[in-house]
Every structure is written in C-alpha cells, then in structure tokens.
C-alpha cells in the first residue's frame, strides 16, 4: 500500500487563501454529546476531532487511509477519519476512543488490550481498539485467527505487536 507519493503537509486547517471563507455548519453526535461545528469543507473528520474538539485520542498516521491509526466508528461502523470530510456527517453518530470508557469503567476491549499487553509505543492502539469494537459482535467475521487478522489488516502496528493484539481481540470477542 505505501507508495512513493508525495504527502502533503498537515495543512488541512489552512484553507486555500485564494478562496473566500466558505464554512459549513454541521451538527453531529460525538461520544453521545451533540456537537455543532463551523468548518471549511476541506476539514477531514480526523482534524475536526483533534484540532477543533481536542479529542486527540484519535491519531494521525499516514493521513491517506493506509495505516488505520485514525479509525473511529461512524454510526457503529469502523472508518478512516482521515478520508472523510467533517461536513459529510450531518446527523451522524461518531464514537472515538474517548467514548469507550463509561463512568470510570474501561470498555471490555480496553480491558482486553491491557490484559494482553497489546501495544508497545501505543500510537496505533486507539485505532486498533476501535476496529475491535466495530467487529466485536459482527458474526459475518469468523472466529478463527485468519479471519480476525484479515478483518484487522487495515490497522498497521509499526512496533509489530500483532501477536498480542490478536490475543486481545480474540479474548474480547470470546467474552462479547
């Protein structure tokens, strides 16, 4: 997947100065809370979360849909938040890693990642956990290791913690 394409700098929040301000109002639900944003059309959901709402648990890795660090749930399904515009999500329910724990209690997927030591540097972990939550009760994805690996293949771990990530996912699914 990785190619030698030129990656543009992290400039999503610096709209083309030659264009007049063209912000759009978008209302959505983030981790159960109603949120109204005033954003330029070119702000991807990832940048809206991190830069406008201070929800920095969702990470920016490749910014091109190749690494999965930015995975969030959109209406319950995992998605790359770097490849979707915030303005496209009027009325949608977004869940980020900050929305997993409830009332001081970790989500079962967070518990499983802790228990299985399913991370090293931790940069990909939020994305890994969001993909796991998305497939927790998805019976279309088989319970064997090969099926789980395939379903999780959109989440890259540069440290190579895959063995323990797989254990954590399997453990969380078995208990779900």
């Amino acid at each position: 997947m990785m190619d030698d394409s030129v990656h543009s700098p992290d400039d999503a929040l610096q709209p083309d100065a030659s264009r007049s301000s063209n912000t759009v109002t978008v209302s959505l639900t983030i981790n159960g809370e109603p949120v109204t944003l005033e954003v330029e059309p070119n702000v991807v959901l990832l940048d809206a979360l991190r830069e406008r709402l201070d929800l920095t648990g969702t990470k920016k890795g490749c910014d091109h849909g190749q690494c999965g660090a930015c995975t969030v749930l959109i209406d319950g399904h995992s998605a790359n938040s770097c490849l979707t515009l915030a303005v496209m999500h009027e009325g949608c329910e977004i869940t980020t890693v900050e929305g997993l724990a409830r009332d001081g209690q970790l989500h079962p997927v967070q518990e499983a990642f802790l228990e299985h030591d399913a991370y090293q540097c931790g940069y990909c972990t939020a994305g890994q956990m969001m993909s796991t939550v998305s497939m927790l009760n998805d019976k279309r994805i088989g319970s064997d290791d090969a099926s789980v690996k395939e379903a999780m293949s959109g989440n890259i771990c540069r440290c190579g913690a895959y063995k323990n990530i797989l254990s954590a996912v399997q453990s969380a699914r078995a208990k779900a």
Partner: peptide, 21 residues
C-alpha cells in the same frame, strides 16, 4: 480493509483511479 469497505460505495469503486505511483 474493513474500514475502507465500510465506507467505499459500489459506484465509487467503479470510479476509482489507478494506484500507479
């Protein structure tokens, strides 16, 4: 990947551009 398949559409897949570097 799962994340991309969850979002990518039928017509969008028909329209997708080459990955030639």
């Amino acid at each position: 990947s799962t994340q991309l398949r969850n979002v990518a559409t039928t017509a969008g897949n028909v329209m997708q551009r080459t990955r030639c570097p």
